[in-house]
Simulated scan of single mutants.
Amino acid sequence: MFKKITIQADERGLLFRRGSYLKVLQPGVYRLAPWSEDKVEIVSIMKPFVLPEKELSLFTHDSELLRELEVVQVEDHEYVLRFEDGKFAGLLTPGSYAFWQVLKKHTFVRADIRQPELPSGVNAAVRTKLAPYCQIFEVGHHETGALYYNHELQQELKPGKYYFWKGPVAVSVKTVDLRQLQLDMTGQEMMTEDKVTLRLNFVCQYRIVQPLRVLAIKSFEEQLYIQLQLILREYVGTLKLDELLRMKQELAAFALTRLNEKSEEIGAVFLTAGVKDIILPGEVKDILNTVLLAEKKAQATVITRREETASTRSLLNTAKLMDENQTLYRLKELEFLEKICEKIGTISLTGGNNLLEQLNTLLGEKKTG
């Protein structure tokens, strides 16, 4: 009895005789005799052309089959992006592939991974699906980036997201922060001209303006710190302690000027600088406190004597006026009498005189010579 084989419209049959491929069978109904050594493999044309344990090269001699297939050879230095009807369907790594060009239209984009940057025609939605095959670098909105191939500088990168193939070329991106930055020097020991050792806290703000020059300097922040340290030592070493304490603002201005003299060399411009603290040794601090206390006491003594002199002079002037004016003298007596009465709870009168006469007796009369 004949064996009936039906091939649907979305299928193709591959006819084998004694294990060797013979030809492709189009949709239809076929019958094989029971004693026939032929065998038919039915494959879907909706899927890539793949037969387990069969090499693609076994089928490439069939011109009829090749009219319906798209054969893609991917070299060792390539990736191939496959699209079905314009939609991304996958990425092909080195090897041989075949796809049916019947019900679907397959297109391919080749990428030479010796050139690490992804082709410009690959949109952002597709790039996210290529993550296993790519290196992804991001440059923030406040940064600039430097692109290196095999540690060799290629170009400066603006803010954005960048994709590069994982391949024979080593890709790296270094970023530089373009925001205002701060350099803190804390507890730096220095010696003044009069051999006083102190600790200085200093701060300065700066902004990087030439990123590539900064990247060319190894340990940029460390070298910047050393430059600031040397500048401050140069200034502090020329001043006595009293002068330094008096000229803190001049120290900041000097450091800012000297740093900006090197801005072209190091690729950064310095905006502000200032002394946060000058920390003195304990014994020096005690001496200064003693001196300050003595100065304040001397100032207080001078002020006290000045006030006593002014008070004495005022009393003398008042006495002269009262001596020259009898009425003023009597008013002053009444003023003092009023103050005395404010502190007295009760007044007892004795004798027969009236109140006014007794008060006159109490006060007495000013004798005239």
Results as ranks from 00 to 15, higher is better:
Glu333Lys: 13
Arg31Cys: 06
Phe254Tyr: 12
Leu181Arg: 11
Glu308Gly: 03
Ala9Lys: 15
Pro34Cys: 09
Lys47Gly: 02
Leu15Asn: 00
Ala170Tyr: 09
Glu143Ala: 03
Gln249Ser: 06
Glu11Arg: 08
Glu295Asp: 06
Trp35Asp: 03
Gly145Met: 05
Met190Asn: 01
Val24Ile: 14
Pro281Tyr: 09
His151Thr: 11
Asn325Thr: 13
Leu14Phe: 11
Lys218Thr: 09
Gly351Met: 08
Ala125Asn: 10
Ala111His: 09
Met191Ser: 05
Glu265Phe: 13
Glu55Cys: 05
Val203Lys: 02
Asp76Ile: 15
Ala33Arg: 14
Ala89Cys: 07
Gln210Arg: 12
Lys39Ser: 06
Asn123Trp: 12
Leu280Cys: 02
Glu64Lys: 14
Lys105Ala: 04
Val72His: 01
Leu331Asn: 04
Ser172Gly: 03
Ala124Tyr: 15
Asp286Lys: 15
Thr257Ser: 05
Ala170His: 09
Glu335Ala: 07
Ile226Asp: 01
Leu66Ser: 01
Val203Thr: 09
Ser172His: 13
Ala298Ser: 09
Gly187Ile: 11
Ala131Leu: 15
Pro52His: 07
Gly90Thr: 11
Glu222Ser: 08
Phe88Ser: 02
Pro116Ile: 08
Leu212Glu: 03
Gly28Ser: 05
Lys161Tyr: 05
Leu230Phe: 13
Thr6His: 09
Val209Thr: 12
Ala111Gly: 03
Lys129Tyr: 09
Phe59Thr: 04
Leu293Trp: 10
Ile303Lys: 13
Lys23Met: 11
Leu232Ala: 01
Cys204Phe: 11
Arg199Lys: 15
Glu243Ser: 03
Glu308Lys: 13
Lys87Glu: 06
Thr257Ala: 05
Pro48Gly: 02
Leu244His: 00
Glu143Pro: 03
Ser348Lys: 14
Glu221Ala: 09
Thr238Gln: 07
Asp62Pro: 04
Lys104Leu: 07
Ser314Trp: 14
His106Pro: 01
Gln180Ser: 08
Arg233His: 08
Val80Met: 04
Thr312Lys: 14
Ala216Ser: 12
Gln299Gly: 03
Glu295Ile: 14
Leu81Val: 10
Asp184Lys: 15
Lys105His: 09
Gln229Ala: 05
Pro94Leu: 07
Val214Thr: 03
Lys332Ser: 04
His142Gly: 01
Tyr206Arg: 08
Gln205Asp: 09
Ser263Gln: 11
Met322Cys: 06
Val40Asp: 00
Ile344Cys: 02
Leu153Gln: 05
Arg67Gly: 02
Arg213Asp: 01
Ile231Leu: 08
Lys166Cys: 03
Gln205Ile: 09
Val171Ile: 10
Phe99Trp: 08
Phe2Ser: 07
Phe254Asn: 00
Leu241Asp: 01
Phe220Leu: 05
Phe99Arg: 00
Gly121Asn: 12
Glu156Met: 14
Thr257Ile: 12
Lys240Gly: 00
Val80Cys: 02
Ala294Met: 13
Lys47Ser: 05
Glu342Trp: 15
Val169Tyr: 04
Leu244Ser: 00
Ser219Phe: 10
Leu244Asp: 01
Ser44Gly: 04
Thr272Lys: 10
Leu91Asn: 00
Asn325Gln: 10
His106Gly: 01
Lys174Val: 07
His106Ile: 15
Asp277Arg: 15
